[in-house]
Design a protein around this nucleic acid. Structure first.
Lengths: 148, 148
DNA sequence: TTTTCTGCAAACTGTTTGCAAAGGC
DNA sequence: GCCTTTGCAAACAGTTTGCAGAAAA
C-alpha cells in the first residue's frame, strides 16, 4: 500500500513521494522539473527541459536539471532513453503506458509505439541469460513522413 | 551477384569491396580497422579499437578511427550500437548473425543474444507507423553475473 | 542552525573538424 | 602528379563536478 502503487495518484505526486522516501528534500527546482514532466507523455531531452522551464519563467540551472533527472531515474519514476548521437531523452515512468520509441534520423523527432508481442518476447529473453535484467529499450530508427 | 551478397566471402573482403564500390580508396588505416573488426563477433567502442590497434603496433589516429567507422556504417557493413552513457559500440554487420545486446550497467560488459520471436515482433511494428524504418536496436540493461 | 539544494562556471568525455603532410592510383 | 586519406591538435556538444550562496527542515 505504499504511495508508489500509483492507485489513482498523479505521476507528480508519486514522483515527489518517491523522492522524499529516498531522503531528498522538496526544493523549488525539483518541483519545477516534476511539474513539467508530469505534463509529458513522451521524452524530452535535458536541453528541451531546460529551455521549457526558462520559457515558463521558472528557469533551473543546467546542472540541477541533470541532477534532478538522475535522482528521479534512480528512484524509478523517470525513464532515460538513449536517443543516439550522444543524447538522452527523459520521460515520466508510467508502467500502465509502457512504450518504446521510433526516432527520425534526420530531424530527431521521437514517436512512441507499443506492442504486446514485443514485450512478451523481451520478457522471455530477459529470463534467459546470466544477467539480472533491470530494464530494456527498443529503438527503431528511420525517416519520418516529413523527412522523406 | 555482387560482392555484397556475402556468398562465402570473409566480412573483411565484403567491407573492402563495399568501400571501393562507394568510391573510397584503399588506405592503410582502413585496412587496419577492417582487419581488426573482422576478428570480432560483437561490439567494440571506438576507444577500444584505437587501443587495440595501437597495441598491435599499427596505430591509427582517433579521428581516422571515427571517420572509417562512419564510412563503414554508411556503406552498411558495420552496425553502430548506442551503448548508453554517450558511448557507441561498433561491430561487423553479418546479417546471418543478427543479434542484440545486454549491457551490464556496472562494468559495461556487452553480451549478445538473439530471438526469432523478437525479430518477428519488430518486423511487424516496423511496417505499421508512418516511418520508413532503416534499422532497429534492442538493449537489455542489468547486472552481469560477476557484478551482482 | 544545520544540512541539503541550487546555480554558476569550469572541467570532462566522447566525437567531429580543419589543416598540412603522407600515401594511393 | 593529382586527389584522397591520415594524423594531429583544436573545437564541439552533452554531461558532470566543485564550490559558494540560498533555501528547506
Amino acid at each position: 500500500m505504499s504511495a508508489s502503487d500509483g492507485n489513482g495518484e498523479s505521476w507528480a505526486a508519486m514522483a515527489t513521494a518517491g523522492l522524499s522516501r529516498a531522503g531528498y528534500r522538496h526544493g523549488g527546482a525539483r518541483a519545477a522539473v516534476i511539474g513539467l514532466l508530469d505534463a509529458q507523455s513522451c521524452t524530452m531531452t535535458a536541453y528541451e527541459i531546460e529551455a521549457a522551464l526558462r520559457d515558463s519563467g521558472r528557469s533551473v540551472g543546467r546542472a540541477s536539471v541533470y541532477r534532478i533527472l538522475d535522482e528521479l531515474e534512480e528512484v524509478g519514476v523517470v525513464t532515460k532513453v538513449e536517443l543516439g548521437r550522444g543524447q538522452a531523452g527523459y520521460e515520466p515512468a508510467r508502467p500502465e503506458h509502457h512504450h518504446h520509441h521510433i526516432v527520425c534520423e534526420s530531424c530527431g523527432r521521437v514517436q512512441p509505439f507499443d506492442d504486446a508481442g514485443l514485450e512478451e518476447a523481451i520478457g522471455r529473453v530477459s529470463a534467459d541469460g546470466g544477467f539480472e535484467i533491470t530494464g530494456h529499450e527498443v529503438i527503431l530508427r528511420g525517416r519520418c513522413r516529413d523527412c522523406r
